[in-house]
């Protein structure tokens, strides 16, 4: 298997007032194509920063970030946006659906960044919603859906443009156990059956169990790896 993501000697420091806080001082990480990685760690361990670096929504101070053979750390903002649209599907803790759009329209949103025809878009939306089992709710607005259903719509939005990589930020943090397990099962399925590479940040050890492996981050360093 080849590496999809490779972080080499990544450094990141934040300035908070006059104080500067070093988050990463030479972080290395390799994620293989088709992997499902859970990242755990206490608050302030650097989980969110890592997520932002992996998703191209934040920049490292130095070091290399490679994605599928491309060096994305040198990209400008516009290139990063294009790369995100092509390569990454995002799943958030609070779903972050657009309240003015119905489920199908929310799922269609990333396709607005492609040149697909209207017909092809509709087909992709249908496929994505069918994968998460919500095709019958296509015309519902987010506020007419339960939390679990909203997160499914969010997953459909993440996969609709068929990115290789899914980035999940506490995807079950706001859901009850059963619903959470359903969602995690879906992610596992996407990993196993569709070969999506998934990185999931979570607090929840139960959730981490659905991943192929778990990385524990503490003070900017991977402390321990459980397979």
């Amino acid at each position: 298997m080849s590496a999809l993501i490779q972080l080499k000697n990544v450094k990141k420091t934040y300035k908070r007032g006059k104080e500067s806080i070093t988050i990463f001082d030479g972080l290395n990480l390799t994620i293989e194509q088709g992997d499902f990685v859970a990242i755990m760690g206490p608050s302030g361990s650097g989980k969110t920063t890592l997520l932002n670096l992996l998703g191209g929504t934040d920049r490292s101070d130095s070091g290399e970030i490679n994605f599928d053979g491309e060096r994305i750390d040198g990209y400008n903002e516009g290139q990063l946006a294009g790369w995100r649209a092509r390569s990454v599907g995002f799943i958030f803790q609070f779903y972050n659906l657009m309240p003015v759009l119905n489920a199908a329209q929310n799922v269609e949103l990333p396709l607005m960044l492609t040149k697909l025809s209207a017909g092809k878009r509709r087909a992709n939306v249908e496929t994505a919603l069918k994968i998460v089992g919500l095709w019958d709710r296509a015309k519902h607005r987010p506020k007419e859906l339960s939390g679990g259903q909203q997160q499914r719509v969010a997953i459909a939005r993440a996969i609709v443009s068929d990115p290789k990589f899914l980035l999940c930020d506490e995807p079950t943090g706001d859901l009850d156990r059963n619903t959470a397990n359903d969602i995690l099962g879906t992610l596992q399925q996407l990993n196993q059956e569709m070969g999506k590479t998934i990185v999931m940040v979570t607090h929840d050890p139960e959730a981490a169990r659905f991943a192929k492996r778990t990385l524990h981050l503490d003070k900017g360093v991977f402390a321990e790896v459980t397979q």
């Binding site: 998703g55 929504t57 903002e77 516009g78 946006a81 294009g82 790369w83 995100r84 649209a85 092509r86 990454v88 995002f90 958030f92 972050n96 657009m98 309240p99 949103l109 990333p110 607005m112 960044l113 939005r157």
Partner: peptide
């Protein structure tokens, strides 16, 4: 604000 952040995350360019 948050929705705009999400749009940008999804890859909508700032312009």
């Amino acid at each position: 604000t948050k929705e705009i952040g999400v749009m940008k995350t999804l890859g909508f360019s700032s312009p």
